[in-house]
């Protein structure tokens, strides 16, 4: 358990998963307890499925004046399992800090991915959310896992903000939160992970003299390299027996990444597919199923 008068939390999620809501709930609970707290998102071109950040600061005694992003968090919470290998989620995580991850993997297995003096807390939040809430939105569930790993706020302090935020669905969300609290497994990362720590590319940004006139981009179509497929948590799978080759899936795909193969059956290019599920929703013959994973 982390005990300090001041705690900083960084939330990693994807647009639509509710990381911002998680941070808001924690801050409102802390303020309800009479503490000082902040919750804020990272402001950017986030869209549903894109990696996003949210932040918390909690101080039991002093007003919080800092208005910059959290770069040296005490706690990192990862709402989407896929982000662990995509983003350096432990960047700046303080020694003795805590990493809380939504994953179907066991804590013993997952800790091989990391090396550092941290606690690792793991919960299968997706399963809990889907069972109790009917959707894969793990914001409230991961709040439960966080509270198991730290005393950021008292569990009961969540009731009021949950009620206000979720109304009729507050009960189910509180239950998901509670279930996660009870099923979160925690382990100290004792040794350096056996896997070589993944290295994450740092983008080199140009100086002002290097910019072209009017910041024009002279390389057309370079967004082709941008793998929006990283954003998905589910992907479409076709049952060709049911497919009537009508092509409606291809028409409704907002990414334009569904095309027929040589036999005329449709497939999504998973490098670009964001897993929105519109193809499955619109398919006349229900030949498309959305399946977990990228």
């Amino acid at each position: 358990m982390i005990k300090d008068t001041s705690i900083e939390i960084r939330w990693h999620g994807r647009g639509g998963q509710g990381a911002v809501t998680s941070a808001e709930l924690i801050a409102l609970a802390a303020i309800h307890e009479g503490k000082f707290a902040q919750a804020f998102p990272s402001f950017g071109p986030e869209r549903r499925g894109a990696p996003v950040l949210a932040f918390n600061r909690i101080d039991a005694e002093n007003p919080i004046r800092i208005r910059s992003g959290v770069t040296k968090p005490d706690i990192v919470v990862v709402l989407d399992p896929g982000l662990v290998t995509l983003i350096n989620v432990t960047d700046g995580l303080k020694p003795g800090g805590c990493l809380v991850v939504n994953s179907t993997r066991t804590v013993e297995d997952l800790q091989q991915e990391f090396s550092g003096d941290w606690k690792l807390a793991v919960v299968d939040a997706a399963s809990i959310a889907r069972e109790l809430l009917g959707v894969n939105i793990v914001n409230t569930t991961m709040v439960g896992a966080l509270l198991k790993a730290s005393e950021a706020v008292k569990f009961d302090s969540l009731k009021a903000p949950l009620g206000e935020r979720f109304g009729a669905r507050a009960g189910a969300n509180f239950e998901a939160c509670m279930r996660a609290y009870n099923s979160t497994a925690i382990s100290q990362i004792t040794t350096t992970g056996t896997k070589k720590p993944k290295s994450f590319a740092v983008e080199k940004m140009p100086g002002w003299r290097e910019l072209l006139v009017g910041c024009m981009v002279t390389e057309p179509g370079n967004t082709k390299r941008f793998g929006t497929g990283d954003w998905k948590s589910q992907h479409p799978v076709w049952d060709d027996k049911k497919c009537i080759k009508c092509g409606i899936c291809s028409l409704v795909c907002p990414e334009g990444c569904i095309k027929p193969n040589n036999e005329g059956y449709y497939r999504a290019n998973l490098f670009y597919c964001k897993g929105c599920g519109m193809c499955a929703h619109e398919c006349w013959t229900q030949a498309i199923k959305m399946v977990e994973g990228t």
Binding site: G44, M205, W208, L211, L212, M216, V217, P220
Partner: peptide
Amino acid sequence: PRPLDPDDPITMGCFAAPNLYTEARRALDA
């Protein structure tokens, strides 16, 4: 220097995130 041309396409008017906007404004001011 590089007009819009379908045969030689470029992009004008991209957005610049916080990691680029300052440089873009500095270049314009200069």
